[in-house]
Structures are given as structure tokens and as C-alpha cells.
């Protein structure tokens, strides 16, 4: 921001600032994608290649530091931390994606119905949403998990239920803003049946914001899963998850911080990556929307 280009020194083109911002976004976005890629590849490929077994006890190497045999060291029972972290990644990603998908699949149609139909449907859905939002999300998930009993599907449901209202609200708001657009009116004038309008006009146009929102929630769901497992009401033992690993390592925090550090770093990097991707996705959407 010094001076303007003047009479004589006119450059052929000013450097567009938009592009610069995008380049900055690209960098973090690539790192985030790279981490998730590495995690997934490692999750699938490393255990068979290295012969990792998350449950194998090695009594000769309890609390061992990183070594050629145990890359990240071992825990109190001599189990390989890398093996457990990677095995836990499977559960965490499954629960994260699965519970978000459940929440979206329930919440979005409800929200669309409320937004499109208005009146009674809106009143009923909004009431349910308000009631659900009245509970603190984590407490609700806790209660549900405790009530349903520990199992992977139950954990997914327990995490999904508190997320449903957010999806319903988003879908309702998006649908209502679409309803003011003339193309929906145009479809109605043609005589398009309501279901067809929802499927062909509304769904494609709310997919992007819903996806971006879902991505953020995958991170949150992984976090909640960690919390539930940490409290011992999540995924049942002996299946390792990042949450249970942190819980188990708690006792040995001073003795062997690696036990907590390994799952924590995995969790942090994963959630950070997902959030960065979500941010980038949201940003792209807004710049595109603003430009057109």
C-alpha cells in the first residue's frame, strides 16, 4: 500500500489479492490432506507390513521408549503404541464419520421439511430441536452412551443424537433462504411435485454448506468419542481407541508420558486437519458465492 500505479509506470496487470489469499490457504490445506492421507495409508498398510498387533503383550518391553521394534514405544503392558494408535484411528474415524452421517441423514431431511412446509411441520421440528438443544450435548451423549451400553454402533448413536438439532437447524435455514429464490417459485409454477422440488432443487443447493458443516462435526465427534472412551462408557475394551489409550496412560503420566502423547498427537493432528479442510471449504464457498 504505497502509491498507485501512475501515468507512466502502468503495469500490465495488478497482482490480484484474491489469488494470494488462496495460495496461503493452499499450503495448510495440502498439509492437512497429507496428514489424513498418511494416517489412512498407515492405518491400512503398516500393521500387516510391520506385523503390528495392538493387543500383543510384550512383557520384556514395558514402558519402553521408541525403538526399532516399537517405533513409538510401548505401554504399561508392553503393547505397541503405534499399533494401538493406528487401530484406534480406525475406530475414531469410523465413529467420527459414522455418527456425523447419522446426524446429517436424520437432521437434514427434518430441517428441509420444516423449512419447506413451514407452519405445523416447522413448529414440531423446531420444538424438538429446541428441546434437544436444551440438554448440554456432551451430557446427553454421556447419558445415551451409558443407557445404550458400550458398543461401536451405540457410541455412534450416542454421539449422533446431540448433533441432529444442529443439522436440522442448518438445513431449515438454508431451505428457507432458498425458498425466497425465484427458481423454486418457478418450479412450483411448472407444477413440480414437492418431493421432486426437494430432490432436484433444494438438495443440490444445500449440499455444499451441509458438507462443510459436517466436516467440522467429524472433528467434534472424534473428540466426543475420545471423551466417552476416556470415561469408560465408549467403545468396549479391549478395542483400543484414542480415548481409552489416554485414559489408560493417565496413571503413568509422569512415568511414561509417551503413552498419552501418542494418541493425543494423533487426535490433535487429525481434528486439526479436518477443521482446516472444513475452513477452506467454507471459505471457498463464500468467495464463490460473493463473486457470482
Amino acid at each position: 500500500m504505497t502509491t498507485t500505479t501512475t501515468a507512466t509506470g502502468g503495469r500490465p496487470a495488478g497482482t490480484p489479492r484474491v489469488r494470494k489469499r488462496r495460495a496461503g490457504g493452499d499450503w495448510t490445506h495440502v498439509v492437512a490432506l497429507a496428514w489424513l492421507g498418511v494416517l489412512i495409508v498407515a492405518m491400512i498398510a503398516l500393521p500387516p507390513i510391520l506385523g503390528l498387533d495392538p493387543l500383543a503383550l510384550d512383557s520384556t518391553a514395558r514402558f519402553s521408549g521408541p525403538s526399532g521394534e516399537h517405533w513409538l514405544g510401548t505401554d504399561d503392558l508392553g503393547r505397541d503404541l503405534l499399533a494401538r494408535a493406528l487401530d484406534g484411528a480406525q475406530v475414531s474415524l469410523l465413529v467420527g464419520l459414522g455418527s456425523t452421517a447419522i446426524a446429517a441423514l436424520v437432521g437434514v431431511p427434518l430441517g428441509m421439511l420444516a423449512g419447506y412446509r413451514g407452519r405445523l411441520a416447522d413448529a414440531v421440528v423446531s420444538f424438538l430441536v429446541d428441546v434437544l438443544l436444551g440438554f448440554p450435548g456432551l451430557v446427553l451423549a454421556l447419558g445415551l452412551a451409558a443407557f445404550l451400553g458400550p458398543s461401536v454402533p451405540n457410541v455412534m448413536i450416542a454421539i449422533a443424537v446431540p448433533l441432529v438439532p444442529a443439522f436440522a437447524r442448518l438445513a431449515r435455514a438454508q431451505t428457507m433462504s432458498l425458498l425466497t429464490r425465484e427458481f423454486i417459485e418457478a418450479s412450483r409454477v411448472i407444477g413440480t411435485p414437492t418431493l421432486s422440488i426437494m430432490r432436484r432443487d433444494i438438495v443440490p443447493n444445500i449440499t455444499e454448506p451441509v458438507l462443510a458443516f459436517a466436516l467440522v462435526n467429524v472433528g467434534r465427534a472424534i473428540l466426543i468419542e475420545g471423551g466417552l472412551s476416556f470415561l469408560g462408557i465408549g467403545v468396549p475394551l479391549p478395542q483400543p481407541t484414542w480415548g481409552t489409550m489416554i485414559n489408560e496412560g493417565r496413571v503413568y503420566l509422569t512415568q511414561s508420558p509417551a503413552i498419552i502423547l501418542a494418541p493425543s498427537v494423533f487426535m490433535m493432528l487429525t481434528i486439526l486437519s479436518i477443521n482446516l479442510l472444513a475452513d477452506r471449504y467454507l471459505l471457498d464457498r463464500t468467495t464463490v458465492a460473493g463473486g457470482s
Partner: peptide
């Protein structure tokens, strides 16, 4: 009875081609 609205671009689904939208009725 058919209609034409004020906002030209706004009366088309942004995710579909004009041809698609015109064939929709």
C-alpha cells in the same frame, strides 16, 4: 398458466444447465 420472474439468473437452479431447466416442465 406459466410465469416469468424479475431476477433472470435467480429463476434458474444454479446447479443445472439452462437446457435441463427448460426441459424440466
Amino acid at each position: 398458466v406459466q410465469a416469468i420472474f424479475q431476477n433472470p439468473a435467480g429463476s434458474f437452479n444454479p446447479k443445472r444447465s439452462l437446457l435441463d431447466s427448460v426441459a424440466e416442465p
